[in-house]
Amino acid sequence: MAGVHLRHILLDLLPSSDMTKQRRELGIQHHLEKIVADLWAINAVIRDATMRAGTQPDAEMWMADAGVAIADVQNLLDRILEWPGRAAAPSNPLLRSCLSIRVAFRLSVLQELKEMGLRLKELVRRGSALDLRKEMMDAMDPCDEEYSDVLGDEAVVRDEDRDNIIEMLQQKQSSSDGEPFVIVIHDEVLWSGKTTLARMIYHHPWVRQHFQHRIWVDVSIAYLSIQ
Rank of each mutant, 00 (worst) to 15 (best):
R86M: 14
A64Q: 08
T55P: 01
D65Q: 12
A59L: 02
V68K: 12
A88V: 02
M63V: 07
S91V: 10
I80D: 05
E60T: 03
D58P: 00
N75P: 01
R96F: 09
L77F: 15
E60G: 08
M51D: 09
Q56Y: 04
E82Q: 11
A64T: 05
D72V: 03
L99H: 09
A66K: 00
R52M: 11
M63R: 07
L77C: 15
M61W: 04
I80P: 11
M61S: 07
E82R: 13
S97L: 15
E82C: 03
A66H: 01
V68D: 12
A69L: 12
L77V: 13
N92C: 02
S97Q: 14
R96Q: 07
R79C: 00
L81D: 02
V68F: 08
D78V: 06
D78H: 09
T55D: 08
M63K: 07
P57Q: 10
D72R: 15
A64Y: 06
V73I: 15
T50Y: 05
S97G: 13
D78C: 01
P84L: 00
A87K: 13
S91E: 14
L76Y: 04
S97D: 15
L77Y: 12
I70T: 13
N92D: 08
I80C: 04
S91K: 09
T50N: 07
D65A: 08
A59G: 02
R52Q: 14
A64W: 05
G85F: 10
T55L: 09
L77I: 14
T50V: 05
S97P: 02
L94I: 00
E60K: 10
P84N: 04
S91G: 06
A69V: 15
L99Q: 11
I80E: 07
A53C: 02
C98Q: 09
T55C: 03
A87I: 11
L94N: 11
D58Q: 12
C98E: 03
A66L: 01
R52N: 04
P84Q: 01
D72A: 14
V73G: 02
A64P: 00
D78Y: 03
V73S: 03
A87W: 11
M51K: 09
L81Q: 07
L77K: 06
V73E: 04
M61C: 02
M51H: 06
M61T: 07
A69P: 08
W83Y: 15
L76T: 04
P90G: 05
C98F: 15
T50L: 04
R79S: 06
W83R: 03
R52H: 06
M51R: 09
V68M: 08
W83P: 10
W62I: 01
I80A: 03
A64S: 08
A88L: 01
A87T: 10
A49D: 00
W62C: 03
A89R: 15
P90W: 13
L94M: 14
T55N: 09
A89G: 13
D58Y: 02
Q56N: 09
A71F: 05
W83H: 14
V73M: 13
G85Q: 10
L81V: 00
A71N: 15
D58K: 13
V73L: 10
W62P: 05
